[in-house]
């Protein structure tokens, strides 16, 4: 954990929404989640500095999505404590944005892309009040940001997988949060969308925001992330990407899955000490 403390000290001060510079952006202690008495996550401890793009990697069933959902209080956790910028999550809810997995919603639902993006503003609009033109304009700007301005009035089932992911991202952008959790934003998207999304994530980091991304493709880990959480029901390793993304840690994370490991070892060929 020493690595963490030294990492990104300077950018820490930019942490938007954080009253003091010292506390980590995300602080998790002893987080344990169990489904039907079967533990899915054990004793998760995390300290992540602000203004980083952090990857969460691990094999299938490692609990990556569950980790995000537990942090966001979407699944009940047996024990544990989550703080965002030094304060309990419940108080900081409004400065946290979330991009769920694309498959988690019904894409035949009768709404347009713009209406979907505007959902990110509902919290600001508040109970009972309708979505006015001013808010629609905000949503349109966000769509422009992700290169989807031409598709505002399309029904969402008539968008490609990459386009759907882009409007999900746009919805998160209008939330104007300080910290984002994204569940597999690169799943099933085309190469150009992946690049576009990544550019936006880096821009968010430049603005001092902290972004967590559940990720599958080990080959791009080193290029995409500055912070990495390697997960397999517990935290195998966490820290600056360049330091924890090692063959040793990969082996511990992915266990005996050799073919996968071979590909990964190829991918990190250059970083072995």
């Amino acid at each position: 954990m020493d690595i963490l403390k030294n990492h990104n000290q300077s950018t820490n001060k930019q942490g938007a929404g954080s009253p003091t510079a010292n506390p980590p952006a995300l602080f998790v202690r002893d987080l344990t989640v169990a489904y039907n008495r079967k533990p899915v996550l054990w004793d998760i401890d995390l300290d992540v500095p602000s203004a980083v793009v952090a990857g969460i990697v691990g094999p299938n069933g490692a609990g990556k999505s569950t980790l995000i959902k537990a942090i966001l209080d979407l699944v009940p956790h047996t024990s544990g404590n989550v703080e965002i910028f030094g304060r309990p999550y419940k108080e900081q809810r409004l400065i946290v944005g979330y991009v769920p997995q694309r498959e988690s919603v019904d894409w035949t639902y009768p709404i347009t892309a713009l209406e979907l993006v505007a959902m990110g503003l509902y919290r600001k609009i508040g109970w009972f009040k309708p979505v006015t033109a001013r808010y629609r304009e905000r949503a349109r700007e966000a769509m422009d940001q992700v290169g989807m301005a031409d598709f505002a009035d399309r029904q969402i089932s008539r968008l490609s997988g990459g386009q759907q992911q882009r409007i999900f991202l746009a919805r998160a952008l209008v939330q104007d949060a300080s910290m984002y959790f994204m569940d597999e934003p690169f799943a099933g998207v085309d190469a150009s969308t992946e690049e576009a999304i990544m550019a936006i994530l880096q821009e968010l980091r430049e603005q001092g925001k902290t972004v967590f991304v559940v990720h599958h493709d080990l080959e791009t880990v080193r290029r995409y992330f500055d912070h990495l959480i390697m997960l397999n029901m517990r935290v195998v390793a966490a820290g600056a990407c360049s330091e924890v993304f090692t063959e040793e840690n990969l082996r511990r994370t992915y266990g005996g899955r050799l073919t996968l490991l071979d590909r990964a070892v190829d991918a990190i060929g250059g970083i072995k000490p």
């Binding site: 979407l74 946290v96 944005g97 988690s104 509902y122």
Partner: peptide
């Protein structure tokens, strides 16, 4: 999920 994460 999004609604819950957004605090609704």
């Amino acid at each position: 999920d999004f609604a819950a994460g957004d605090g609704w």
